[in-house]
Computed example of a mutant assay.
Amino acid sequence: MAKARGSAPKGPGLAGDPLGNLVMTEIGIIAQLAGTLFESVLPDGMTRAQYGVLNHLLRLETEETIGELASAFQVRQPTMSSTVRKLEDKGLVALKSDPEDRRIRRVAITKAGKAARQAGLEALGPLYAELMTLVPEKELKAILPTLTRLRIILDERRPD
């Protein structure tokens, strides 16, 4: 059900909900809204999952197995295999044999993959610029350490 235009946004929970629930609900809502908006401005044919894999490999400066990527993104291995296959078909990643164990194949970002990630970042530029006019840079910088700390805490408590 769409929110009535002009009505005030509702809070993240119900009166009396524990603070933890309010925080986690707000994060979940933001993640859903941001993800949908994010994907709407990515270059044609690139999904949020594909951009995420490219960004992950570059951010960590690593090559990972499909299993490691599936674990990092908390998806099933067949789901990650499909994402990697689509990236490979586009020439954005390559599967390379592990030098220590030839049976293991690692996902490596290609030059085209780096360029695609950069194109995605550039496509997101106007969106980020607009958001920066709505939420001052000072406020965003102030909440970033807390968000990072929450991410680390949640990452350490992933279910097996």
Rank of each mutant, 00 (worst) to 15 (best):
S71G: 15
G45Q: 07
A123F: 09
L87F: 09
K3T: 08
R59G: 14
I109D: 04
A8G: 02
P12M: 03
D98I: 03
G52T: 00
G13H: 00
I153Y: 06
Q74V: 06
K96M: 14
L33Q: 07
S7K: 13
E26V: 03
V53N: 03
E130P: 04
A112R: 08
M132N: 13
P136G: 07
P18S: 14
Q50F: 04
T65L: 00
I153D: 02
I30Y: 00
V23Q: 05
E122M: 10
E61C: 12
D44S: 13
T36A: 12
R102Q: 12
I104T: 10
N21D: 15
N55Y: 11
P43N: 05
P43Y: 06
K138W: 02
K138Q: 10
E63F: 09
P159N: 10
D44F: 07
D44C: 05
P18D: 11
L69R: 01
D98E: 00
S40A: 15
L87A: 07
Y128C: 12
T47L: 14
M132W: 00
T133K: 06
E139V: 03
A123Y: 03
A116R: 14
M132K: 14
D160C: 03
R85T: 11
G67A: 05
N21Q: 15
T133R: 00
A116Q: 15
L14A: 09
Q77A: 07
L14V: 04
T47H: 12
Y51E: 15
G52Q: 07
A119L: 11
G35F: 01
K141R: 10
T133C: 02
G45N: 06
I27N: 01
E68F: 01
L127S: 09
L87W: 06
P18W: 02
P159Y: 09
V135M: 08
A49M: 03
R149K: 11
L121M: 10
T110D: 07
L131S: 04
D17L: 05
H56N: 10
G6K: 08
